[in-house]
């Protein structure tokens, strides 16, 4: 027979164990899961990431520092090129890639080719449903905003336009720069049409913006040098990174801005699936998102990392139901209004 005192002790111990187990979850179980994944990843030893590569080096460095037992390799190219290469490789029986860091539209053909595995990261809880693909095949983790960038030596901040309407001032005729890569122009046209209407767009085109077809970052460098003193579709991240290096430039939202988004995904036939999962967890986690937000000038999609200076109205053009058709229309309009095509 159990004594009364001993019964009390047993009951107390049971209660404490229950409380402890309640206190451990979910965080402790997440740590356990991460530790287990890390152990398995250590056995795999390697990780190959296909990426658009813009500003990813600090993230890779932080990941390497956290998991020094992994040899991380990257292949960098533009989103469309990466997607095409992954599909060609898979069709030829070569499945070497483990994870992707791409614009979401580059992941669509990969999903159609059944090359992506669903993500099971504990970090998903921090992301809004709109950031997670329906089948969890990718998660949009950061966004960049597009609006006015200018050289503060060439254009005083007070003189620079504060709204889209001010762009129509005759003093800007022939002086506004436009990043002219076809996707960027189509997105910008879409943003102006959705926010101000097509009539406004035609007036703006009559201001004869100078089209720089040199790559987004190269256009940012022209702003830094003063050669392109004001650009109406500059990336905020480029301006913030340039400011950090000492450049006299600024970025300003002068109307609804459109957001370009980047997502993380892992390959269905990854040679190193645990290392890939570890990388996805890391990229979605607070450490990587802090680097994106505080060091590189992006906005995080995490619900606990909003930027104080984010503009009120953002447009996610790729999420529009008839985006494919609209994109074709905007591209055609860009050719007619800015390049004099038929």
């Amino acid at each position: 027979m159990i004594s009364r005192t001993r019964s009390w002790r047993l009951a107390l111990a049971t209660l404490l164990i229950s409380l402890a187990s309640m206190l451990r979850s979910p965080h402790a179980s997440a740590v356990d899961a991460e530790t287990a994944a890390a152990t398995r990843a250590r056995e795999e030893g390697r990780l190959l990431i296909y990426t658009v590569g813009a500003q990813i080096d600090p993230l890779i460095a932080a990941f390497r520092a956290k998991y020094p037992f992994l040899t991380v390799q990257t292949y960098k190219a533009d989103t469309v090129e990466v997607a095409r290469r992954a599909i060609e490789e898979h069709e030829a029986g070569v499945d070497e890639v483990d994870a992707y860091e791409l614009n979401d539209y580059g992941l669509v053909p990969l999903l159609e080719a059944d090359l992506l595995a669903p993500l099971n990261s504990p970090e998903l809880a921090h992301y809004p449903p709109m950031a997670i693909e329906n089948g969890r095949h990718w998660v949009v983790m950061r966004e960049d905003l597009i609006s006015l960038g200018f050289n503060t030596t060439s254009v005083k901040p007070d003189d620079a336009p504060h709204s889209n309407a001010e762009l129509l001032d005759t003093k800007w005729k022939g002086k506004l720069g436009l990043y002219g890569e076809s996707t960027a122009v189509a997105h910008w046209i879409g943003t102006i049409i959705l926010s101000e209407g097509e009539a406004f767009l035609r007036k703006l085109a009559a201001q004869e913006p100078v089209v720089y077809n040199t790559g987004g970052r190269a256009v940012a460098n022209l702003i830094v040098s003063g050669e392109a003193p004001i650009v109406i579709n500059a990336r905020r991240s480029h301006m913030i990174a340039s400011q950090r290096d000492g450049a006299k430039v600024a970025w300003r939202a002068i109307g609804p801005v459109y957001a370009t988004v980047s997502a993380i995904a892992i390959a269905r036939q990854a040679a190193h699936p645990n290392a890939a999962a570890l990388f996805a967890d890391f990229m979605l986690g607070a450490q990587a998102q802090t680097i994106y937000r505080d060091d590189l000038g992006y906005s995080s999609m995490r619900d606990d990392m909003a930027r104080a200076d984010d503009p009120g109205e953002k447009l996610y053009l790729g999420s529009r139901p008839k985006f494919d058709q609209e994109y074709e229309d905007w591209s055609r309009l860009a050719g007619q209004l800015l390049k004099g095509r038929r």
Binding site: E181, S182, V211, S331
Partner: peptide
């Protein structure tokens, strides 16, 4: 043509073709 022609609104065949390669979601 891309670097020097585009700002002056001069297009050549290659810039048109280049645009057609890169304009869509698939090259």
């Amino acid at each position: 043509p891309l670097l020097i022609g585009s700002p002056g609104r001069v297009e050549t065949l290659t810039t048109v073709i280049y645009d057609s390669i890169h304009a869509g979601f698939r090259p």
